[in-house]
Design a protein around this nucleic acid. Structure first.
Lengths: 227, 227
DNA sequence: AACACCCTATAAAGATTTCATAAAGATTCA
DNA sequence: TGAATCTTTATGAAATCTTTATAGGGTGTT
C-alpha cells in the first residue's frame, strides 16, 4: 500500500518541489499552506508522515507541534529555514521525530522519510479492535467474538489474551505472562495456574487445542500469539 | 530506570567528551574504541542507544551497520565527520536511526537521543533477525526458517545455534559452548551431550551433515558458524 | 601398509522435564 | 448462600535431554 505524506508549507515553490519529489517516489501526497488546515487534513487523512515547515503564516510551527502532537498519530518531520538550535531542540522535545534544515539534500530527505516509515511500521498502531482470522477482540469492552458468536472469557483469561495480542508475533515467556497477569510480585507457583488458564482459554477459542491456530506453545519458553 | 548508551568512537577526546556529556545527563554509558568490540558490548549490555562513529580503525562504519544492524536491538545514532551524502543516505537506509555531522551541537545530540528513546519506548522492539544463505533465525522468537519453511529447534539446540551465530566467523571451543549452553558449572561430561545436540541441530539445518554449510567442526577445538 | 590412538558423528534407549487437562477445593462477589 | 471464578493438586502424555554404545575418519608410528 502507498504511504501517505502530508506537506505543510506555505512557500509554494518549495511545496511544489516537495510534492513533485514525493510523488515521483510513489508516495500519496497531500499538501496544506496553513497550519490549521494542515492539522485538519492530518485528522481526516491520517498520513503516515507530516513534513512541517516551522514558518507558517497562521501559527508558529513550534506552537503547532505543542498543540497538535498528541492529537495525531503521524511521524513529524520538520523542514525549516531557521537553524537556530533552541527551536531545533524544542521541536524535537515537543515530539517532532526529525529535523532538517533548508537547503536540504533531497536524497537525504527521502532517506529520513524511509527511516520514519520504518519506525512507524514497527510501532504497532494499536487498534482497540483486533481482528485475526475468525477471531475478533475488542480490547476495551472485554469482548471476544469467534466466527460471529460471542465467547465469554473470565477476567484473567481476557487479560492473558489481551497481553498476547498486544505482543502478537513475539514470544512471551511464562514468567512475563505470570507477572503481567498476576502482578509483579507473583510467584513461581502461578505457573501451574497459567497453564490452567491457558488450557481454558484455548478450549474457548481454538478449534483443536492440540494444534492451536492462535496461541502456540514455545516449549521451554512460553507462548506466542500468531500474528 | 537509567537508559543505557553505548559510544563507539575511536577518537578518545571525542569519546571522553561524549561519555562525560551523557553521564552528566544521568545516562548509563559504556564505550568502545573499536567496531567489533562495540558489537560484542552491544550484545552483552543491550544498550538502548548506540552512538556510532563511522570512521573506526578496524571496520568501516557502513559495513558495521550492514553486518550488525539486524543482530542488535538498539537505536543507532551515527555521529561522524564525513558529511558526504552518499554515506548518510546509505547509513540511514541500512538501518541507522539518525545521523549527525561533526561538529554537532551537544544540545541537539541530546534532543535526538531523547527522540530515539521515545521511539524505542513506544513499544516497538525491533526484530532481531539473522540471515545467512538459506537460513533465517529470529533470535527473539526462537524461530528458525530454512528455505522458507520453519524448522523446529529444541531450546538447547536453539541456544547453541544462537551463541554460534552471535560469534559467527569465530571458533567457539567446545568448553565455551558447554559453559554457555549448560551453565558455568557444567561438567566435562556434557561434551558428549554437546555432540549429540550438534548432530541433531545439523540434521535439521544442513543439507549434508558430512560437509556442513553453516556450522563447521574445527578439529580438536570446537565449532564455528561460517559467516 | 597395518595398526593404534584420538577425536568426532550418530543411533538408540532410558531418564527427566515440561505441558495439557481434569477434578476438587478455596475464594470472591453479589 | 450460590454461582462464577480462581487456585491447587494429580496424572498421563509428549517432548526433550542425557547416557551409553558403536562406528568412522584422520594422524602418526612402525
Amino acid at each position: 500500500m502507498k504511504h501517505k505524506i502530508l506537506v505543510i508549507e506555505d512557500d509554494m515553490s518549495i511545496s511544489n518541489f516537495l510534492v513533485t519529489l514525493l510523488r515521483a517516489e510513489n508516495y500519496e501526497v497531500i499538501s496544506a499552506s496553513e497550519g490549521r488546515l494542515g492539522y485538519h487534513l492530518s485528522l481526516s487523512h491520517q498520513p503516515d508522515i507530516i513534513i512541517l515547515d516551522l514558518g507558517l503564516p497562521d501559527i508558529d510551527g513550534i506552537e503547532w507541534i505543542r498543540q497538535y502532537r498528541n492529537l495525531i498519530n503521524s511521524i513529524i518531520l520538520v523542514v525549516t529555514a531557521k537553524d537556530d538550535h533552541p527551536s531545533k531542540v524544542e521541536a524535537l522535545d515537543l515530539g517532532a521525530d526529525d529535523y532538517l534544515t533548508k537547503p536540504f539534500n533531497p536524497a537525504e530527505l527521502l532517506a529520513r522519510i524511509r527511516v520514519g516509515l520504518r519506525h512507524r511500521s514497527s510501532k504497532d498502531v494499536r487498534d482497540v479492535i483486533f481482528e485475526f482470522k475468525d477471531l475478533k477482540v475488542n480490547l476495551q469492552n472485554y469482548e471476544v467474538v469467534l466466527r460471529g458468536s460471542t465467547v465469554h472469557c473470565t477476567p484473567i483469561e481476557f487479560q492473558l489474551l489481551a497481553y498476547l495480542i498486544e505482543h502478537q508475533g513475539k514470544v512471551c515467556t511464562s514468567n512475563m505472562l505470570v507477572k503481567k497477569v498476576w502482578g509483579e510480585e507473583a510467584q513461581e507457583s502461578n505457573l501451574a495456574n497459567l497453564r490452567v488458564v491457558m488450557a481454558n482459554l484455548r478450549r474457548k477459542i481454538e478449534k483443536d487445542t492440540a494444534s492451536p491456530e492462535y496461541i502456540v506453545t514455545v516449549l521451554g519458553v512460553g507462548y506466542r500469539f500468531v500474528g
